[in-house]
Amino acid sequence: MAGRIPHPTLKGPSVVKEIVIGMALGLVAGGFWKMYNWNEQRNVRAFYDMLEKGETSVFAEEKDRGPD
């Protein structure tokens, strides 16, 4: 008759817990990325609105460099 083989008890992290933590971190990172993109869209839209109204230009102003 064969003896009993002790099975190691798994003390590692739970797979379900890791999936939930990963999804939560992904949603938080995605939320920050989305807020960043919305802010960039708002800035670009404001720039083009100002450009259309003539309040800004894409050319740098010429500055007086003094005598050459």
Rank of each mutant, 00 (worst) to 15 (best):
I21M: 09
N39L: 01
W33S: 04
I5T: 02
W33E: 09
F47A: 02
E40N: 04
W38Q: 01
V28A: 10
M1Q: 12
G54R: 04
D68P: 05
E55D: 15
N39S: 07
M23A: 15
G30E: 06
I5M: 10
W33D: 05
H7C: 06
F32I: 14
V28S: 07
T9K: 13
V20F: 08
G22H: 01
P13Y: 00
P8T: 13
K34P: 00
G22M: 00
A24M: 13
Y36A: 10
P8E: 12
I21P: 00
E18A: 12
A2L: 09
F47H: 10
E52I: 05
A29V: 11
G66Q: 01
P13K: 05
V58C: 04
L27N: 13
F47N: 05
A46L: 15
L10D: 14
L25P: 07
K63Q: 12
G54A: 00
I19Y: 09
E62R: 12
M50H: 08
H7T: 12
M50Y: 06
K17Q: 09
R42F: 00
D49E: 14
P8A: 15
E52G: 01
Q41H: 00
Y48W: 07
S57I: 02
M35K: 08
E18P: 08
V15S: 10
G22I: 05
K34T: 04
D49K: 10
S57Y: 01
N37T: 04
V20P: 04
A29W: 01
G12P: 02
N43M: 14
D49R: 09
A2F: 11
I5W: 07
T9W: 09
K63E: 10
W33V: 11
F47E: 05
G22V: 05
F32A: 13
A46V: 02
I5K: 08
V20Q: 10
Q41E: 11
R4E: 15
V20S: 06
M35N: 08
H7Q: 15
P67M: 07
S14Y: 06
A60N: 01
N37G: 02
E18R: 12
S57C: 08
V20Y: 06
P8F: 14
S57N: 07
W38I: 01
V44M: 02
G26V: 11
A29L: 11
A60I: 03
S57R: 01
R42C: 04
G22W: 00
A60S: 01
Y48H: 06
R65H: 10
G12L: 03
V44F: 00
